[in-house]
Design a protein around this nucleic acid. Structure first.
Lengths: 197, 197
DNA sequence: CTGGGCTTATGACAAATGTCATCGGGTGCG
DNA sequence: CGCACCCGATGACATTTGTCATAAGCCCAG
């Protein structure tokens, strides 16, 4: 019997997936969590074999949570196959990555594989990640673009990152160029689409 | 027995919700659709009593689909309680509106209520919609901001909307002011957060 | 050691964004 | 009728964005 902890902020979704997984004879959902920042405590309490994490959750995103659970067998569930997410998850030691587009049988298979120490990576996600390659932005470019995505002006970004405005403008300009965008907004969209920010 | 059609682009989610609904003795999911633009044909084919629609789908969003099914009993499922979505759904004659945060019992209750001609509106959604009031933007302001959200420059927006650049700048400036934003990006975020665009 | 990449910065300037005042036309409401 | 609102426009101009060339320091790999 593989014991699972399931974390997803949407009650309906979480409940539905848990019910489906519980129908599998060798799987049992022993805990459900609705916020990323509550996962660690629940893991400590319930000692699940595998943790299934949604990425977008209040309190902490699934990728950050995975990073905070080293050694824990984790499967990431994602709405979008963003290469940046996949790369970050793998860097965090995540061995399972399943899109919400997949049937539940695939999620169950991923859980079993990860539980026995293997890897489960959706073939389409793998392909798109290979094609996407590395994030073309430097750390600082990403920092600046991430803040811009929240509506911050150059001067606000400069204050936040402790840089001069000229440097921030350079970073944003570089990001726009590297992402093949024509302005800040389209650069932000492109980067978010790929999961770089 | 209430016959349902369920439309959600994410296979795992759709399958899980369908399974849960099928556990209810008086509900039966007779069709599942993954794209907004395929709903109408499926409705014509399966003649469901109630259509349960996710909002964000490829091919056509759930709100547009609802608008194209006048007289059909519809329940909208949404990840976010955006007042703009709620208002638009109601204007389209939708009588059920359930957040994905809700337990499945609530979705089943909404389906039953809508099926018998009643309304089902999540209390929290109702409250937030009342507080949010009407969308403060005019139609044209929303048009312009919507295109800006896709990275279009003023000149591109002007061409698309067949306006002069000055007029587009005025619309965007008005939108920024009305949304209490400081620039285009934050205005876009605010409007998207509320479901105005 | 050299070259490349990252980081940070300066400065000049073109282009785009955003503001504001104003005008005119049309519509609906008190 | 007058007013408010929406729509579309003009024009002037301040501010911000974006580009580009350049420079220096640091680190790492060949």
């Amino acid at each position: 019997m593989i014991r699972l902890l399931l974390a997803d902020d949407q009650h309906l979704i979480r409940g539905a997936i848990a019910s489906l997984l519980n129908l599998e004879p060798d799987l049992e959902v022993v805990a459900q969590v609705g916020r990323g920042d509550e996962v660690a405590a629940a893991v400590a309490e319930h000692r699940p074999d595998v943790v299934v994490l949604d990425i977008e959750m209040p309190g902490a995103d699934g990728l950050s949570v995975a990073e905070s659970l080293p050694g824990q067998a984790v499967v990431i569930l994602t709405s979008f196959g963003r290469p940046g997410y996949l790369r970050r998850a793998m860097a965090a030691g995540v061995r399972g990555f399943v899109p919400k587009d997949a049937p539940v049988e695939q999620l169950a298979a991923a859980v079993r594989k990860v539980h026995t120490g293997g890897r489960y990576l959706d073939p389409e996600l793998a392909a798109s990640a290979m094609m996407a390659g590395e994030c073309p932005l430097t750390e600082r470019e990403r920092d600046a673009l991430g803040l811009a995505a929240r509506g911050a002006s150059v001067s606000e970004i400069a204050v936040s990152l402790r840089l001069t405005e000229g440097t921030v403008r350079n970073y944003l300009s570089n990001a726009i160029m590297k992402l093949g965008a024509s302005n800040r907004i389209s650069a932000i969209r492109a980067a978010q689409e790929m999961g770089w920010i």
